[in-house]
Amino acid sequence: MIIQDRPNPIGELLIVLEYWDHIFAGFLLTMWLYVWALMMGFFLGLILANLRQYGGWFLSRISTGYIEFIRGTPLLAQLFFIYFLPSSLNIPVGDWKIETSFIILNKDITIILLDYRTLAGLLALGLNSAAYQAEYFRGAIISVGTGQLMAAQSIGMSRIAGIRHIVLPQALRRVIPAWSNEAAYLPKYTVVVYFIGVKDLFSQAHRTVAFTFISLTTYVLIAIIFLVTITLISKGLDILHKKTMIPGL
């Protein structure tokens, strides 16, 4: 077995790091997508969970149907569907973009904050995350127990007031461990936008490989960046959780 003669990993790493500005731009875009997708998933997920748990026969079923379908199908297929939908319906999407750039260490770093591709990617990620978050919220709502809502109504609160002031505050606290899980790992899923040409961290890695022909080191570097980011987010949320604890909740 002959292992090819090649420059040492450190040497390779240094070559790859010459492209740090592109990699960094990719990282920023990944984070940008992550934050928006997480927020969208949070609000939509919360609505879906409430509809599924407290909505009438009709709304509850629609919500359940949405959740089960999104969770039962690949994110990639969902992304392609959303991305190609306008063109299949002959709706023009235009060639527009909103971007921002700044200069760091003499390098110009530009990221496209929003254009059609980015929007499609965001929507797909947000709609997808919403379905998963909805299940976490629903689990938390159920764990609060029916007695709480009963007690709220027994002092004259309407069902909606009871849900808003008594059930949800408790559910949102109880959901933190499971939700932190989703929040910490969502960055992983944003890479899917690579398939529609959004210049996220993975795309930039790919591009760097095209220029340097150094694949293993580059991809390993990207993997490490993801790992570190996810670990930091996870630990950060843990600390937040400990700081906001209420006895017994």
Binding site: Q148, M150, A151, A152, S154, P169, Q170, I246
Partner: peptide
Amino acid sequence: IGMVFQHFNLFAH
């Protein structure tokens, strides 16, 4: 109409 429950049902938060 007030109600007192067997399992208290105090608002835990």
